[in-house]
Design a protein around this nucleic acid. Structure first.
Lengths: 340, 340
DNA sequence: TTGTACGCGTTATCAC
DNA sequence: GTGATAACGCGTACAA
């Protein structure tokens, strides 16, 4: 096999008896070519099974019609749904998606950014605002339009389509604390290098303060992302002298782990302890008890992000910041603090 | 911004006082360059912030170091974990992953294949064997090494890393039928264009026959992929005159939907009806009751697929077929048929 | 409306 | 070990 050589513009041109320029025009601005010529060319293209060479096209035009996305992980549903919506919209507009994952590691993210940029992606999707200025300088320099999703910060250097993690978690925390909870625990993803996680923790602490509780009393555990790690953290948090009556989790996956462990330990939820999540992935309504959580409009976010990024490419050089609506979903994993 | 021009090999060469050829060698085969020269060049690269131009590189070398993958959907966990493992291995070996999704539509898959090939991907990952010969001819012609995952068929034209869906489901079906179940239901993804789904259905029918049951009695519903559709199908299947005592589901997502609906309808699982899944995604052990299912080694499959595909690129022109080990995981969603 | 000719930034084949 | 230089396939001024 593979002594095969792909037909080129030139081959098509010869077959159709025209110049390469004309063939190129047929492909890129058909309006400039007479119908007669166009027909000839199209036929030649079909006969030869010609497909434009991507590399050459990139070199000549400087456009790849490719968008890069770097997400912390594809392994679970947190980003999957939003990314699917993102890619759907890109596809509609004729773009292709290049995905990479960073495993929540800033160095890996940086490496991936460089890779994607050197591949000439026309634009870049990143998650959250936490990254070094150097990286953003690099993006600036290369002139690669970039957008951040899953976060909202009008002060940040990159435009974003997301939501205010602090405000969202605060809303949940206020609701929870009004139910009478005073001993409070929290399981969070690592807050270092993760602005979303940090904002969520701060929101809980802030709300405690407002409610006359001491934020220092928050029993906080930071851990890796995952069901198993959520379970471990929950066990730890429930074994302290005065265990909390509610455990906030930084996301639904951690909350799921917590819930699982509670079941194993025969700690009834929500009677003995309430558990909350964040993200409202499909899972939240499937586990028992159903998870009280913060609803994030994944599809809307994915689609909107694509729209904004593509319009940035089209020259609309604006600093777009979208704050999507979030709201809390109260389900059975949360109850009033009982009086013991 | 962006009157900026990226530094080229030439710029680096001038700055370092060497030829472009030498710079190129430093990048691609450093061993051929003296340490002294290499240092000079590396410094120039750093000062200028040079990154190779991807398009040019592709044009000159015919290699993109890019692998394409087309999966039915990224929206849920079924493929996510395997793909993450696939990409991790690619990344280790210096390749980048280009993903697209087909939404389970053959035409979209075909379109995506053409897009990725014209982008010059060095290799392609596809899911399942069901596709037209034309597409495979096209791949052959273009000389794009392609591999199939999530399926196993030594007769198929494309090499594969996967497992025997028929054998796997048969093992589960045999186990279930030995428990005394005679009224049998099944919720499957659409079998048209989906060899995995088809094999699983056939395995159940085959096993029924072997056990002296009439395969025609199988209460079968085909539906779209999803939790909600699983729920609807389950409700339908349980409302027939003689409802089944066990419902096989084509995958864990459908089974989850079924389980959810059972809860809503107050049909106790497994006392009243047993439910089984397929895939053993994380979810299977989180829902209540835990799901009896077929375990698929997602990580192993993803990693192995990458290894095989990359070794195909490296010229090992062999028709590799791997049949991974699967086995059933019996959990509490399955019980003996009670005698009523 | 169409054709000519050059440039895009690399890699690879030669010589030296 | 290193340096010229010819491809690679396409887009696009510019000319006709």
């Amino acid at each position: 096999m593979s002594s095969y050589l792909a037909p080129t513009l030139n081959d098509v041109a010869q077959k159709a008896g025209v110049s390469t320029a004309t063939v190129s025009r047929c492909l890129n601005s058909p309006a400039l070519v007479s119908k007669r010529t166009r027909d000839k060319v199209e036929q030649a293209i079909n006969v030869l099974g010609y497909t434009p060479n991507f590399g050459a096209r990139v070199m000549a035009s400087k456009r790849t019609y490719t968008i890069g996305a770097i997400i912390p992980t594809m392994e679970n549903a947190i980003f999957a749904q939003g990314i699917q919506a993102f890619q759907d919209e890109l596809h509609i507009q004729g773009y292709t998606l290049l995905v990479a994952s960073s495993s929540y590691e800033p160095q890996i993210e940086e490496e991936q950014i460089r890779t994607l940029v050197s591949r000439g992606v026309d634009g870049l999707l990143l998650i959250g605002h936490d990254r070094s200025n150097d990286v953003i300088d690099f993006l600036d320099e290369k002139g690669t339009p970039s957008i951040v999703a899953w976060a909202y910060d009008p002060e940040a250097r990159l435009p974003s389509v997301g939501f205010d993690n602090f405000a969202a978690m605060r809303e949940l925390a206020e609701y929870v604390i009004e139910l009478g909870h005073k001993q409070i625990g929290m399981i969070s993803a690592w807050t270092r290098n993760n602005d979303r996680a940090r904002a969520r923790v701060e929101a809980v602490q802030h709300t405690m303060l407002k409610a006359g509780l001491n934020p220092e009393d928050l029993a906080l555990i930071e851990t890796d992302y995952g069901i198993e790690t959520g379970s471990e953290a929950f066990e730890k948090i429930m074994s302290i002298p005065c265990p909390p009556s509610v455990v906030f989790c930084g996301n639904d996956v951690l909350a799921t782990g917590a819930l699982k462990k509670a079941k194993q330990l025969n700690i009834s939820v929500p009677e003995k302890v309430s558990i909350t999540g964040f993200d409202d992935i499909e899972l939240a309504q499937i586990i028992t008890p159903e998870l009280t959580t913060v609803h994030v409009p994944h599809n809307e976010m994915g689609k909107k992000t694509a729209e904004v990024l593509l319009s940035m490419l089209k020259g609309k050089e604006f600093r777009y910041v979208t704050n999507l609506n979030i709201n809390i979903r109260v389900r059975s994993s949360l109850a009033k603090k009982n009086k013991n």
